[in-house]
Amino acid sequence: MITDKLYALKFPIGEFKTPEIITSNQIETWIEDIERFPEEVENTTKKLSQEELNWVYRPNGWNIKQVVHHCADSHMNSIIRFKLALTEDSPTIRPYFEDRWAMLVDNNDNDLSSTLLLLKGLHAKLGKLLRSIKESELSSEFIHPEYGKRFRLDETIGVYAWHGNHHLAHIKQALKYKGKFI
């Protein structure tokens, strides 16, 4: 069982909860969060030293650079999931091993410049796609085999807005605690 302190370190903004009713205003706010995310990450990380990039946000958690690289990996997968759901009938998406990806050489690079460029372009493209989704398409869904459940696009927009905010909070948390939690 996760202690309260560890839970707060793992989920500094809480876990995502799907609203009972997802309004167009809520979707607009989520899309704005998604579009703003790369700039916020860049502003938070651009002056960090190599030592700071290696600070973790919680015990046994990823370091700052792994979090930034992970967001690019995750959000690349997200745009593919949206496109699959918009062009196929309830497709089954392919999950991936985030923890294994975090150990690859590109996710341990101290130079975040390529990843930040990727996030900027990816989020601009994702924002454009999300803004084009018609109300009737928001109920389109994909199947996530890892969870054995269907995800609607309106909910998924919220999940990815939360995901960015969640990891931005992790970065800020690592900086606040200077990678130490004792």
Results as ranks from 00 to 15, higher is better:
Val41Gly: 07
Val41Trp: 05
Val41Pro: 03
Val41Phe: 10
Val41Arg: 06
Glu42Arg: 12
Glu42Met: 13
Asn43Ser: 11
Asn43Ile: 07
Asn43Leu: 15
Asn43Phe: 07
Asn43Asp: 12
Thr44Ser: 09
Thr44His: 04
Thr44Phe: 01
Thr44Gln: 10
Thr45Gly: 03
Thr45Cys: 12
Lys46Gly: 06
Lys46Arg: 15
Lys46His: 14
Lys47Phe: 15
Lys47His: 14
Leu48Asp: 05
Leu48Ala: 03
Leu48Thr: 04
Ser49Gly: 01
Ser49Leu: 13
Ser49Phe: 15
Ser49Asp: 09
Gln50Glu: 13
Gln50Pro: 03
Gln50Asp: 15
Glu51Cys: 02
Glu51Tyr: 03
Glu52Ala: 14
Glu52Arg: 01
Glu52Lys: 08
Leu53Tyr: 11
Leu53Thr: 02
Leu53Arg: 05
Asn54Met: 08
Trp55Glu: 05
Trp55Pro: 04
Trp55Arg: 03
Trp55Leu: 03
Trp55Val: 07
Val56Thr: 14
Val56Leu: 11
Val56Lys: 12
Val56Gly: 05
Val56Met: 13
Tyr57Cys: 10
Arg58Met: 15
Arg58Gln: 09
Pro59His: 09
Pro59Tyr: 05
Pro59Ser: 09
Pro59Cys: 07
Asn60Gly: 13
Asn60Pro: 07
Asn60Tyr: 11
Asn60Arg: 15
Gly61Tyr: 05
Gly61Cys: 09
Trp62Phe: 11
Trp62Glu: 04
Trp62Thr: 02
Trp62Gly: 02
Trp62His: 02
Asn63Pro: 06
Asn63Trp: 03
Ile64His: 03
Ile64Gln: 01
Ile64Trp: 04
Lys65Val: 08
Lys65His: 12
Lys65Ser: 10
Gln66Phe: 08
Val67Glu: 14
Val67Ser: 08
Val68Met: 04
Val68Asn: 05
His69Asp: 02
His70Gly: 06
His70Lys: 10
His70Asn: 04
Cys71Asn: 08
Cys71Gly: 04
Cys71Arg: 07
Cys71Ser: 02
Cys71Thr: 00
Cys71Lys: 10
Ala72Asn: 08
Asp73Gln: 03
Asp73Asn: 01
Asp73Phe: 08
Asp73Pro: 00
Ser74Lys: 01
Ser74Arg: 00
His75Ile: 02
His75Asn: 15
His75Arg: 08
Met76Glu: 09
Met76Trp: 09
Asn77Lys: 04
Asn77Pro: 08
Asn77His: 12
Asn77Asp: 14
Ser78Glu: 10
Ile79Met: 08
Ile80Tyr: 14
Ile80Glu: 12
Arg81Met: 03
Arg81Gln: 06
